[in-house]
């Protein structure tokens, strides 16, 4: 069953047509990977799923993106949308505050005031992000003192704290070492039991390792979308084959 349903999506940055007639069904509680060369539109599409492109001047979007059947561009409250669809970026970006306050930031914004409730939410989010054991004794320390891998897991915890349904990850491990990368990948596999994950990655092996579905983008178009195993063993389109085998261009 589709969690997100994208139909006839077109996106222009002024005169530049960044997404062309995108149609994709993103299954619930699975990991969907977007791959493709730089500038192909994969991050643009990811950002379109929680309306982060709306902030950019000259951005024009047509078509529909349905979240559980509701059109996110027509009538949905943007704060509610971003609560339901969280995002983790390429570079870990914790706020310059304590570990606890980073994770509590979202729930507080959404009106949670009870200390007991906040403590519960922070612990659950940190546990779900597989970082609780490493930080439970230093929750009041500044988050900027953590390692890159820990900061990224903290950012995932921060996204999870508002109990989203979908987690968007834009190259979440490209700034991390192999051990931290492996932790994030294991975490993504664990998280998909509860969340729908959409991940942009330049690391083809990562897409092959952890995603259930993969979409290959080129020049703003979805060239091929299939089960990951199928796409990486028997791609149907020659452009996909050339890209994933490294013979592109």
């Amino acid at each position: 069953m589709s969690k997100i349903s994208i139909s006839d999506l077109e996106l222009h940055y002024s005169n530049f047509n960044a997404l062309k007639n995108v149609n994709l069904e993103i299954p619930e509680k699975e990991i969907t990977a977007y791959i493709g060369p730089s500038g192909c539109g994969k991050s643009t599409l990811l950002k379109s799923l929680n309306r982060m492109n709306d902030l950019i001047e000259g951005c024009k979007i047509t078509g529909t993106v349905l979240l559980d059947g509701e059109d996110i561009y027509r009538g949905m409250d943007i704060n509610l949308l971003r609560k339901r669809v969280g995002m983790v970026f390429q570079k870990p970006n914790p706020f310059p505050m304590t570990i606890y306050d980073n994770v509590a930031f979202g729930p507080r914004t959404h009106g949670v005031r009870s200390k007991v409730k906040l403590d519960e939410m922070v612990e659950k989010a940190l546990r779900d992000a597989a970082i609780w054991d490493e930080v439970k004794d230093r929750l009041k320390k500044n988050a900027l003192g953590m390692s890159g891998g820990q900061q990224q897991r903290l950012c995932i915890a921060r996204a999870l704290a508002v109990q989203p349904e979908v987690l968007l990850m834009d190259e979440p491990t490209s700034a991390l070492d192999p051990i931290s990368t492996s932790r994030i990948e294991d975490l993504a596999l664990e998280l998909k039991k509860e969340y729908t994950i959409v991940m942009v990655t330049h690391n083809m092996q990562q897409a092959a390792r952890i995603s259930d579905n993969t979409a290959f983008f080129l020049l703003g178009e979805v060239v091929e979308f299939d089960k990951t195993e199928e796409l990486f063993s028997m791609p149907k389109d020659k452009r996909t084959e050339d890209y994933i085998t490294g013979r592109f261009g």
């Binding site: 083809m204 092996q205 092959a208 990486f232 063993s233 028997m234 791609p235 084959e241 994933i244 085998t245």
Partner: peptide, 9 residues
């Protein structure tokens, strides 16, 4: 080379 697709086959 971590081959995929036709190379892996």
């Amino acid at each position: 080379q971590q081959p995929v697709a036709r190379d892996l086959r």
